[in-house]
Nucleic acid binder design. Structure first.
Length: 876
RNA sequence: GGGCGCUUAGCUCAGUUGGUUCAGAGCACUUGGUUUACACCCAAGGGGUCGGGGGUUCGAAUCCCUCAGCGCCCA
């Protein structure tokens, strides 16, 4: 075996990734086996790998590799998302740097730039995933703006429109003045900001009275179309039916009454600006108020803003406040903390704005998706997200699906006239024309008369089809691939996009296939730094994943990421975890090197301790295998890793290998060697999902393997039976060995000096373990005795007593003190058990099993006390 | 303001329907060992009145009430 003294992760990882790719192990085709499918949450096409992706994709790769080993036809579909707003923003910025203004370009010209950008930066992230070891079926790589996926999106839009779910509405939407587009409610982040509350005096028409009104947005007075008071407010009875005059623009507006007004807030009077506040809009609708929009698309004031026309809303606010102060309209300001909606993407303060947008009715569509999760048809892991999901789905609002962007799927609506209803929706312009002709009864319409809607669809309107569209399930709903791979098995994603994406995929799944898109959703946590801050570019607290891979190896990072990340919990990442990960990889490497470097003596008989050790590890392995099954079934990936980690490090390396290791300079017998190699191979199989590279490296080093014998496609170890009684016995053996080690430490007896041991075997423990106790305790001879041994150190395991003879005089005082302490403890313990057992209500009510356990405890304690008393007597 | 959840060792977390030797793991820590695979090693050890208070029960980290602190989602 050609084993280097140290493990070179980088070389090894590149080597095996290429090997796997060359031999097509990641590729899946429809066959007679049962499929196991994952679709990747498509990252932004021009994005780069961050720690969140690392965690997410490590988990997916663990699941997919394990499925492959378990004999499923494993298929992991990779791909990217066009991410309309994020990508468009990047392209706009890049053009700006080149001195090009987006508004000076035609749609086609801009899209050329966007595609160029996409081709240049697109897919980098997928290349980075390869470094992590992701075993995606790269031949299936998809992009949400691929021709077939785009067609799917358009087809679905048209279909939903025909079914009456898609409609066009003049509604108040969240307007991002920086990106000049609408945002869905989910894309708006509310942040607490300290602002001011301004108190303004409005004159009352035909009187000298003034009315004081508190507002946070004085610049919107130009859009005021009413003042509202609460009809129950006696302070304002005299104002009923009167009119007020808006300062600066001197417009006369009615004073209306509505119980909506909060008597406590501000002055108890509300200025109503229907164009710029959702609640005001509702009030306006109720009282049929005029709507005056005072902003341009970039949130600068329009002509309604009079001499402030063209000024940005915040600059305008500052200047208006000054003017109002001079005019003595502004009487007072207070600081006021309120939550301000900001754009997730651009950070701009959201402006509520009325405009024509496309909406999708959600209530009816959401119902099956809500039921699916409540009935556990689709399992959310962890379950705590079910409540959140339900709350959201029960209060679902119509989805604004149009965006004032160019990068994305252009809405297939075609206008043939100026009227609000003068449009048709169709998959192609040609179809649109014939529809328009029949709708208008005008056969003279031509293609030139049709103008397509300028807006693009929300990105999520394409990614919600992802699990279907990657298998072409929308355009060809009955093709073999979709029928075979759909529904997929697991979806691994972040809880932040539970509604953005996951819920909508479930909705689309039921609408278009009458079936869920996946069985389970594994929700990862957010990767945070040690101070619990979210890792982000702007904070600069996120390590570069590729640097980490370089430093610790992909296997090391994978272990590091999974060491502490139960589903749904945030992951406090620190580099030390990767260090621990690469330490584990190193341990695996060294243990394998030890085994494979042993020289075998074909004629040497197998020593008894080797036989016992092998049987024990086999049992231990089986037990771990059963535990792993349980952990995986419950998606407890970290626990599965920890089980494997402890099995390999503690049981295999620290116990098993130490037990069978031949004495220095000696060879190992053939039987033990063969078992050790087989057990090592079994270890590699369960290690593979976590550390694919090192495991394949060692696997291939054990013997020549042809391409059908690679570890990546090996068979998961068979589950048989774990001999629990044997394992339990062995725990006693470990305690006996620990006892020897403790005495050695206390008495400064070097491990190199062999010692004697005598046993009073009250437990009737099998003598077959003696050879192991002797080896690991470096004991020359174990003698069985009936009487306690004088001049010795003693300890007890269960009711057995162990004696190590001391050469010099032992410290009697010290021994008595120790024994007395042990005695006190045991007596106290016995007392509590006896008390419990003498409680009739306990004996009568507790299950028999529990009572039996207590009785056993009592007997054990009594036996121990007896033994300690004996020892004490012999010392005195 | 409404909803959901969390609080267990220095840190990150387990703890399944209340019931095995005074609550477990990994890391960290302390001490000792190590020419014999690995200083990325081995062994031994210390450390928690399970957020506070009250209740139900033979028995509560686990169930109920209450207070306090924290987090997330929505308005």
């Amino acid at each position: 075996m050609a084993f280097a003294a140290t493990y070179n992760a980088k070389e090894t990882e590149d080597k095996w990734y290429s090997y796997w790719m060359e031999n097509d192990y990641f590729h899946s085709e429809v066959n007679e086996k049962e499929p196991y499918t994952i679709v990747i949450p498509p990252p932004n096409v021009t994005g780069v790998l961050h720690m969140g992706h690392m965690l997410n994709n490590t988990i997916q790769d663990v699941l997919i590799r394990r499925a492959r080993l378990k004999g499923y036809n494993a298929c992991w579909v990779p791909g990217t998302d066009h991410a309309s707003i994020a990508t468009e923003a990047k392209v706009v910025n890049k053009l700006k740097e080149e001195g090009i203004n987006k508004n000076d370009l035609s749609r086609e010209e801009f899209l050329d730039h966007a595609w160029e950008w996409t081709h240049k930066h697109g897919g980098i992230i997928l290349e980075q995933l390869k470094k992590l070891g992701a075993s995606c079926d790269w031949e299936r790589t998809k992009f949400t703006m691929d021709e077939d996926l785009s067609k799917s999106v358009i087809k679905v839009f048209v279909d939903l429109h025909q079914k009456g779910h898609v409609y066009r509405g003049y509604r108040m939407v969240n307007w991002d003045p920086k990106a000049k587009t609408t945002l869905s409610d989910e894309e708006v982040i509310h942040v607490e900001k300290e602002g001011k509350l301004y108190f303004l005096n409005y004159a009352i028409e035909g009187s000298d009275d003034v009315l004081s009104i508190a507002t946070t947005r004085p610049e919107t007075i130009f859009g005021d179309t009413a003042i509202c008071i609460n009809p129950n407010d006696e302070r304002f009875t005299h104002l009923k039916g009167k009119k007020a005059i808006v300062p600066l623009c001197n417009r006369v507006i009615p004073i209306i009454e509505d119980e909506y007004v909060d008597l406590e807030f501000g002055t108890g009077c509300l200025k109503v600006t229907p164009a710029h506040d959702e609640n005001d809009k509702n009030l306006g609708d109720k009282h049929q108020l005029e709507v005056i929009d005072i902003f341009n698309d970039d949130a600068s004031l329009n002509s309604y803003g009079l001499h402030y026309e063209g000024k940005d809303r915040f600059d305008a606010r500052r200047d208006i406040v000054k003017e109002l102060e001079t005019l003595q309209v502004l009487t007072k300001t207070e600081t006021h903390i309120n939550k301000v909606g900001t754009s997730e993407r651009t950070g701009a303060v959201i402006e509520p704005k009325l405009s024509d947008q496309w909406f999708l009715k959600m209530k009816e569509l959401a119902q099956p998706a809500l039921d699916a999760v409540l009935d556990k048809e689709v399992a959310l892991v962890p379950e705590k997200f079910i409540n959140t999901y339900r709350h959201w789905m029960e209060n679902v609002r119509d989805w604004n699906i149009s965006r004032q962007l160019w990068w994305g799927h252009q809405i297939p609506a075609y206008y043939y006239g100026d009227g609000k209803e003068d449009y048709v929706v169709a998959e192609s312009k040609e179809e649109a024309l014939s529809l328009a002709k029949s709708k208008t009864n005008n056969d003279n319409l031509s293609l030139a008369d049709l103008t397509q809607d300028e807006d693009a669809l929300d990105t999520w309107f394409s990614s919600w089809l992802w699990p279907m569209s990657v298998f072409n399930g929308i355009l060809e709903p009955d093709n073999t691939e979709i029928n075979y791979y759909y529904p997929t098995n697991d979806l691994v994603t972040a809880p932040e996009i539970l509604f953005f994406w996951v819920a909508r995929m479930i909705i689309a799944g039921y609408e278009y296939r009458g079936e869920k898109p996946f069985n389970s959703v594994y929700l990862t946590g957010i990767v945070r730094d040690k101070q619990r801050r979210k890792m982000s570019k702007s904070l600069g607290n996120s390590p570069d994943p590729l640097m980490l891979i370089d430093k610790y190896g992909a296997d090391g990072i994978r272990v590091g990421m999974l060491l502490s990340s139960p589903a749904g919990n945030d992951l406090m990442f620190e580099e030390d975890l990767c260090k621990q990960g690469s330490g584990f990889v190193n341990k695996i490497f060294n243990a394998s090197r030890l085994i494979l470097n042993w020289e075998v003596d074909q004629d040497k008989p197998q020593p008894a301790y080797c036989k016992t050790a092998t049987a024990w590890y086999q049992a231990k392995f089986q037990k771990a295998l059963a535990e792993l099954e349980d952990h995986y079934n419950k998606y407890r990936i970290s626990d599965a890793l920890m089980t494997t980690y402890k099995l390999v490090w503690d049981d295999f390396c620290s116990w098993f290998l130490e037990m069978i290791k031949p004495p220095f300079g000696e060879k190992i017998d053939a039987t033990t060697y063969q078992s050790a190699v087989t057990l090592l191979e079994d270890n590699l199989k369960i290690l593979h999902p976590f550390v694919p590279f090192i495991s394949e490296e060692i696997w291939q080093n054990i013997s020549e393997r042809n391409k059908e014998e690679a570890l990546i496609i090996a068979a998961w170890p068979k589950q048989t039976w774990a001999d629990e009684a044997f394992i339990k016995d062995f725990e006693t053996v470990k305690e006996i060995i620990s006892g020897v080690r403790t005495i050695r430490k206390e008495k400064n007896i070097s491990f190199k000096d062999s010692i004697q041991m005598s046993v009073i075997n009250n437990e009737k423990l099998s003598t077959s373990y003696d050879s192991i106790i002797a080896k690991l305790g470096n004991i020359e001879e174990i003698t069985y005795v009936e009487e306690q041994l004088a001049n010795s150190m003693s300890y007890r395991v269960k009711s057995n007593e162990y004696f190590i003879p001391m050469i010099g005089a032992i410290d009697v005082e010290e021994e008595i003190k120790k024994l007395t302490e042990e005695l006190n403890y045991q007596q106290g313990f016995l007392k509590s058990v006896t008390k419990k057992l003498s409680n009739e209500r306990f004996v009568d009510n507790a299950p028999e099993k529990v009572v039996a356990i207590e009785k056993q405890k009592q007997a054990d304690a009594e036996a121990k006390i007896e033994a300690i008393n004996q020892s004490l007597k012999s010392l005195k």
